[in-house]
Structures are given as structure tokens and as C-alpha cells.
């Protein structure tokens, strides 16, 4: 009955929110810088097989670990492999795991948390207790089983990590939704008879985007390091392929003798994380609905 009305609201709100956000993001230099860095890294990762200076697996045992030089800008590792190439290939894995696993965590976590927080009552209790139970299951056994049953596919590893990381996301989203669902505008929308999925999509989720984005940018490094931990235990990426996390964990062991093996992958990871955080903060500020009132 109130269909035409809702379309109008949707159209108005929809365009203004995202368009406003984009304008505000463009004015935030640091966020824009973050966006450029992240885009640059993704482009490099995609192009790596064509632009990498050396093969990531070809060895030169007689060369061994050498410090940075003209031939090898980042130096070489114990096997005489070019570190720049390995950092580039490692970036492919790390960025892919970061993006994929975080997306999985985001989708499941936001959906789960929103429904639990909004519907409330018994549904909420059951859904959150399921989260509690999943938290408590022995994670390593779970991963070992996945690997044994499905074989060691990298894609599966990403999904498995995402499937674990959504739990915290769900808790945070639910907490946020609990606050929002009692706000005046949500109550107004409800009194107007708008359907629940509509309210969730158009009011609740956009208004809890801030913490979601902040937590999502925090999840990216978390899943990258989790991947490193699993690979380190032998449950993840198999050599000679590598990831930033793995390169760093090996670099950390030899940092006193061959520090470049730690410094370059460490820098790559740090730059990515900083850029992501600037971008995340910028997005959060840009999407803040309250800011638009000013």
C-alpha cells in the first residue's frame, strides 16, 4: 500500500548517500592515497606473471642469500631466488586471501549479525549461541579435517579462513544493530509498514556500515596472518609458492643474519595495511549518515 512512497524514499536516499560519500572520499587526501596504493597493488598482483623479473622458483644454490643489488633489487634468499619476484607472487596470495576471506566473513557475518540483532528474542538467542559454540570448536582440528577431506586447495583455504573469521564480525554487527533498531528513523520506517528486509537493507545496514568497515579493514591483516600461521604449520600454501605472511615468518627467523629477507616483505605488508586502513577510515567517515546532516 505504501509502495510508491517507499520507492521515492529509496531513490532519494540511495543516490544521495553514495554520491555524497564519493564526494567526501575524494576530499579526503589520505583515503584517496590509500585507494591509489591498494589499486596499484592489486594491479601489480594481477600482472605479476608477466612483469616479474625472475621465476619465483628457479634456484641458484651457489649464489645463496645476497643483499639487494642492481640485478636483484630486494636481494635473494637462501636458495638464490629473487626476493622481489617472490614478494610479488606472495602478494598475489596474500591479497587474494585478504579479499576473498574477508568477503566471505563480511557476507556471513553481516547477514547473521543483522538478522540476530534485528529480529531479537529467541531467534537472536539461538543464533548467538551458535556463534558461541563455533567459537569454541578446536580450529586446528577443523582445518586439518578440511584439508584431508577436500585436499589442499588454496581456494578452500581462503574459504575456511573466512568461515572462521565471520564470528567476531557477527557479534559486532549485532551489537550495532541492537542500538540502531530502536532509533527514531527505524521506528518511523516500521510504523510506515515497510517490510523487514527493506528496513534492514535500506536503514539498518547502511547505518551500521561504520564499524563494519572498520572491522573489515582489521580482518584483512588478521586473515593474512592466519594464512601465514596455517602455512607455517604446514596446512596452507605449499612451497615453492609463498605469501607475505610466510616470507615474513621465515624472514623473522633469520633477521639477524639476512635482514633484507624480513624488511622487504614486511614493508610490503605494512604499506598494504596502512593504505587499507586509511581507505577504511575514509570510507567510514564518508559513509557516516550523521555527518551528512551537518
Amino acid at each position: 500500500m505504501s509502495e510508491p512512497q517507499s520507492i521515492i524514499i529509496e531513490a532519494e536516499k540511495g543516490t544521495s548517500l553514495w554520491a555524497d560519500a564519493w564526494v567526501r572520499l575524494k576530499n579526503n587526501k589520505l583515503a584517496l592515497f590509500g585507494l591509489y596504493v591498494v589499486s596499484f597493488l592489486i594491479v601489480v598482483a594481477i600482472l605479476t606473471p608477466w612483469i616479474a623479473p625472475y621465476s619465483y622458483e628457479a634456484q641458484n644454490l651457489d649464489l645463496g642469500a645476497t643483499p639487494p643489488s642492481w640485478a636483484h633489487w630486494f636481494g635473494t634468499d637462501l636458495f638464490g631466488r629473487d626476493l622481489l619476484t617472490r614478494v610479488m607472487y606472495g602478494g598475489r596470495i596474500s591479497l587474494a586471501v585478504g579479499i576473498l576471506a574477508t568477503s566471505v566473513a563480511l557476507v556471513i557475518g553481516v547477514a547473521w549479525g543483522t538478522v540476530a540483532g534485528y529480529v531479537g528474542g529467541r531467534t537472536d538467542a539461538v543464533m548467538m549461541r551458535i556463534v558461541d559454540a563455533l567459537y569454541a570448536l578446536p580450529f586446528i582440528i577443523f582445518i586439518i579435517l578440511l584439508m584431508v577431506v577436500f585436499g589442499k586447495s588454496i581456494l578452500l583455504l581462503f574459504l575456511a579462513i573466512g568461515a572462521v573469521e565471520w564470528l567476531t564480525m557477527a557479534r559486532i554487527v549485532r551489537g550495532q544493530v541492537l542500538t540502531i533498531r530502536n532509533q527514531e528513523y527505524v521506528e518511523a520506517a516500521r510504523s510506515m509498514g515497510l517490510s523487514t528486509p527493506h528496513i534492514l537493507r535500506k536503514h539498518v545496514v547502511p547505518n551500521s556500515l561504520g564499524p563494519i568497515i572498520v572491522y573489515a579493514t582489521l580482518t584483512v591483516p588478521q586473515v593474512m596472518l592466519l594464512e601465514a600461521f596455517l602455512s607455517f604449520l604446514g596446512l596452507g600454501i605449499q612451497p615453492p609458492m609463498s605469501s607475505w605472511g610466510l616470507l615474513i615468518s621465515y624472514g623473522a627467523e633469520v633477521m639477524e643474519d639476512t635482514p633484507w629477507l624480513l624488511i622487504f616483505p614486511g614493508l610490503a605488508l605494512s604499506i598494504t595495511l596502512f593504505a587499507l586502513n586509511f581507505l577504511g577510515d575514509g570510507l567510514r567517515d564518508a559513509l557516516d549518515p550523521k555527518a551528512s546532516k551537518d
Binding site: 582489521l218 591483516p221 596472518l225 601465514a228 600461521f229 607455517f232 605472511g245 615474513i248 615468518s249 624472514g251 623473522a252 627467523e253 633477521m255 624480513l262 614486511g266 605488508l269 605494512s270 595495511l273 596502512f274 586502513n277 577510515d281
Partner: peptide
């Protein structure tokens, strides 16, 4: 301050400890 706090994330435990 936010960049300083970020160090904790960029330096994972297995690196920060030995460092």
C-alpha cells in the same frame, strides 16, 4: 596515534616477539 597503534598489526606476534 593511529599509525603507532597500527604497528601492532603490521608486526605479527611471531615477528614482534623476537624483534
Amino acid at each position: 596515534p593511529m599509525s603507532l597503534a597500527m604497528i601492532g598489526i603490521c608486526f605479527p606476534t611471531f615477528l614482534l616477539g623476537p624483534l
